[in-house]
Write a protein that binds this DNA or RNA. Structure first.
Lengths: 195, 195
DNA sequence: GTTCTTTCTTAAGCTATCTTAAGAGTTTTT
DNA sequence: AAAAACTCTTAAGATAGCTTAAGAAAGAAC
């Protein structure tokens, strides 16, 4: 996959939501950086500060944190054409407490904050695009709280499969369990019981 | 409490975070609307669309929704100088699935979206202020997911008391239970066991 | 193709939390 | 001040989900 192809993927993705001119596309292309991660590599580790918005061109990633008992809890999963980050750190500019990790060999496009904020002025559509992204992030967080409070684990699991069919195929079950907030053993149990 | 006092409270609140000129203050004052709710009145009900940002001048409010079993789940609590809303509905412009309700007699200042968006251009500081508010809302949602996944109920309860000491005093326990995601009976049990 | 590592399953016993139900306190309304 | 409505507590029995431990299966590395 050439870098030109990679840029096209990002541009099409943005263009799907808003209307971009040739000028806009040129401007966006100027701020792009590339990054490639091997399976299990970390994009962000606790103590880092996130200073980029990260678009998955190819591969699969997740963000998670460790609780006091060193249990992993997965907050976000993403594949091609998803954005992945510790938005807490990116927005607040504080140190992250999370890991953002590649689950497969992964190609990313990074948009550095400083250049991106300049771009907001030159191409206001991009500003709208990211405002929408932040809103959606908020809404999906709220959705998740609502689910976790009202649904039982088996229902959360079937919801997950319905919503993320393509991700479910590529991610180990123990990570799905850690996303759903249950142990892998219990997930295995649920799958058997209700199949 | 005069309306001038109420406006002052809002202006001081905003001014605490950003720097406002006399001109800015005048402009903000122009978009203000007042609303007063009796205990148990609803500001928003399922099916409504939220078109205002809502600042609590005096009183106490909460947002909650009902799950399939008609169980209440509290998402947000607020007292004086807090903002309360169904941000999902406000941001996405879709119908709310939530209730936003007064827990005491409550005085509110409402900022209608259309006027507010015009104000963003006239007073960019206000735009920054609300961007910060949205960010904080996101971060506190994430915080809440992290807590609900890693902590046991008793720990979540003591965290709640520490963080919201002033709210805890004014809100019935069954609402705190529904915020923590446990039954009121179990909260009562926890309070006894660990006191 | 064998070995090592990672992931998934099974099952038994345990614990946190829920359900139901009833009664005791509190507020609010009349 | 009495009645009504709301809130909190207690306790017994039920259940969802966890822990531990072991082995099976699948993938990756040599």
């Amino acid at each position: 996959m050439t870098t030109a192809n990679q840029i096209d993927l990002l541009i099409n993705h943005i263009n799907y939501h808003i209307e971009l001119s040739q000028y806009d596309i040129g401007k966006i292309s100027e701020v792009i950086e590339f990054k490639e991660l091997k399976k299990k590599d970390f994009l962000i580790s606790p103590g880092d500060r996130s200073n980029t918005m990260n678009f998955i061109v190819q591969g699969c990633m997740r963000s998670f944190y460790l609780d006091e008992n060193a249990q992993e809890h997965t907050l976000q999963l993403g594949i091609e054409e998803w954005w992945i980050n510790d938005l807490y750190s990116y927005l607040s500019r504080k140190e992250s407490r999370m890991y953002v990790q590649a689950l497969e060999q992964t190609k990313l496009i990074l948009l550095p904050r400083l250049k991106l904020e300049k771009l907001y002025f030159e191409v206001p559509e991009v500003s709208h695009f990211f405002r929408m992204k932040f809103q959606n992030a908020y809404v999906s967080m709220q959705e998740r709280i609502i689910n976790s409070m009202s649904d039982e684990a088996y229902e959360r699991y079937t919801d997950f499969i319905k919503t993320y069919r393509d991700i479910e195929q590529r991610v180990p079950q123990y990570i799905i369990a850690s996303y759903l907030g249950i142990t892998p053993e219990f997930l295995s149990h649920l799958r058997k019981k209700n199949s």
